[in-house]
Design a protein around this nucleic acid. Structure first.
Ligand code: MN
Ligand code: MN
Ligand code: ZN
Ligand code: ZN
Lengths: 154, 154
DNA sequence: ATTTTAAATGAGAAGAATTCTCAATTGGGA
DNA sequence: TCCCAATTGAGAATTCTTCTCATTTAAAAT
């Protein structure tokens, strides 16, 4: 991750925000999980450590951390966003069958970002990169992918 | 786009779905726009041509078209999804200041997908690739990007 | 340590996006 | 043409997120 607990909270203070216990705990929860979490999931964990925490504060803090570049969120095709600390490899493979989310890094992306700067004058500050498809496990199960291509039931 | 009107509707029929006027019109609206549209925006245009169309049908049809691989959706940081026909270049630059969405293609991505197949055994069927940052216009305006880094107002 | 004050919070209402329910309609095969 | 499962429209219901506002609190100033 781009910032440990101290670094992250320091950034909060330096930006002129108060260092409240709620913000502390939310940051800790984000740090102690290796998975993406929805706001609801984060809030549930926050309340384990700080029972009177309110959901709105979790949303407000996640927004704030995002503005500060400490947190990013992705949309894995579900109805809600998923949050995680910024800075680690941020490319996702989302299996359409089992729902598994595999993270991967690639040095291709660094090249792409340089190209974007050169060709489009665009400065990248964050990215949301998801490849949807079928993971190796699900492919091995022998079920034809085409069988799933249309699971629509009206 | 991957499929013209005829091809797309043909695929619908071939998959065993009825070819209703609502579906026709929704497909036409998608085809006649070069921009990403929210479900609400799409529905508004659909009603211009077919006033008694219901919003739920627009949602249902967009889901169906997505299952069939005819439509994709992206999440541009707003609260709602944006839809467009599948098949054209699908990489997006989203300006955090002016909100502009620039589309771009890159042959890097083909390579990445091949690498994913080789290294992870993952078969890509769709992708959602967004780079967030600041477009050339907004950068030229001379406003320091850092000034915006935290627009949070409590 | 006490005072002060704007920032932050909790609770629940409100809002927005999406899905569901179900009675009525309809596309398209027989 | 007849039939019926598929589809639809309307609005209720759900889910996710933001807003409102009275109360609390971090932390700067005394
Ligand atoms: Mn990640
Ligand atoms: Mn696009
Ligand atoms: Zn899988
Ligand atoms: Zn811009």
């Amino acid at each position: 991750m781009i910032s440990g607990l101290k670094t992250g909270l320091k950034k909060l203070k330096e930006a002129g925000f108060k260092l409240t216990p709620q913000r502390r705990v939310i940051f800790e929860v984000l740090e102690s999980s290796d998975k993406h979490m929805s706001a609801e999931e984060i809030h549930k964990r926050v309340k384990e450590r700080y029972p009177r925490a309110g959901l709105a504060t979790t949303y407000r803090t996640l927004d704030l951390l995002k503005e500060l570049g400490l947190v990013t969120n992705i949309n894995l095709g579900e109805e809600h966003k998923h949050y995680e600390l910024a800075g680690k490899c941020h490319y996702h493979l989302v299996c359409l069958r089992c729902g598994d989310v595999i993270e991967f890094g690639s040095n291709f992306f660094g090249k792409i970002e340089k190209g974007l700067s050169k060709d489009h004058g665009f400065e990248v500050t964050d990215q949301n990169v998801e490849f949807h498809g079928y993971c190796s496990k699900c492919r091995q199960k022998g079920e034809k992918i085409d069988d799933l291509a249309c699971g629509y039931e009206g």
